[in-house]
Computed example of a mutant assay.
Amino acid sequence: MKKVFKTLITVSFLFIAFVGYGIYWAFFDMNRLPTGEYLTEDTSPDGTYTLKAYVANGGATTSYSIRGELVFNERKSKTKNIYWNYEEDTASISWTDDDTVVINGHSLDVLDEKYDFRRE
């Protein structure tokens, strides 16, 4: 009886984890954002990073969104999305120091911060 109960709990936990990850992947993963059309870019003061901004047209039923993509200039690393905001169609980018960028009023440390309106 204990073995059946443990097996049932384990299977239930795995099912819940699988469904939870599927929801995250489908709706919140920043790697699955639409590409959008190139808008502008700005390079960090020391030249280490470039932030490229793209505008994504959601179609007739949703507003425009801005996607900010961080490019590592000195390394051949994969780019990463660090900014995603809804109901924006322009991007104002400025660097406050070598690792901190301000995008449309949102300040981000490019090493470990992201802004995603869906998580606010």
Rank of each mutant, 00 (worst) to 15 (best):
Y21S: 10
Y21Q: 01
G22S: 15
G22M: 09
I23M: 14
I23V: 15
I23E: 12
I23K: 11
Y24P: 05
Y24F: 14
Y24Q: 10
W25E: 15
A26R: 14
F27G: 08
F28R: 13
F28E: 10
D29I: 04
D29P: 06
M30D: 14
N31Y: 06
N31W: 00
N31K: 12
N31T: 11
L33R: 10
L33N: 05
T35Q: 14
T35P: 08
T35L: 08
T35N: 12
T35E: 15
G36W: 03
G36Y: 02
G36D: 03
E37S: 13
E37L: 04
Y38R: 03
Y38N: 05
Y38F: 15
L39D: 06
L39E: 05
L39T: 04
T40D: 06
T40C: 12
T40Q: 09
E41D: 11
E41Q: 13
E41N: 14
D42Q: 13
T43L: 03
T43C: 02
P45K: 01
D46A: 10
D46M: 12
D46R: 10
G47K: 07
G47S: 07
G47L: 01
T50D: 01
T50L: 09
T50E: 11
L51V: 15
A53T: 08
A53S: 09
A53Y: 00
A53H: 02
V55Q: 12
N57I: 09
N57V: 12
G58W: 00
G58T: 04
G59L: 00
G59P: 03
A60L: 15
T62S: 13
T62V: 08
S65A: 08
I66M: 02
R67L: 11
R67T: 08
R67G: 04
G68H: 00
E69C: 01
E69G: 02
E69Q: 06
L70W: 00
L70Y: 04
V71C: 00
F72K: 14
F72D: 10
N73G: 01
R75F: 02
R75D: 14
R75L: 12
K76A: 15
K76P: 11
K76F: 08
K76W: 05
K76S: 15
S77C: 04
S77F: 11
S77E: 15
S77L: 14
K78W: 02
K78P: 10
K78D: 07
T79Q: 12
T79F: 02
K80M: 13
K80A: 06
K80D: 04
K80T: 08
K80R: 11
N81W: 00
N81F: 00
I82S: 03
I82N: 06
Y83W: 06
Y83V: 13
Y83T: 08
Y83Q: 04
Y83G: 01
Y83R: 09
Y83F: 12
W84S: 06
W84C: 09
N85A: 09
N85G: 11
N85P: 04
Y86A: 08
Y86W: 09
E87W: 07
E87I: 04
E88M: 05
E88I: 01
E88V: 08
E88W: 07
D89F: 08
T90K: 13
A91G: 02
S92H: 07
S92A: 13
I93H: 02
I93R: 03
S94T: 11
W95F: 05
T96E: 07
T96Y: 02
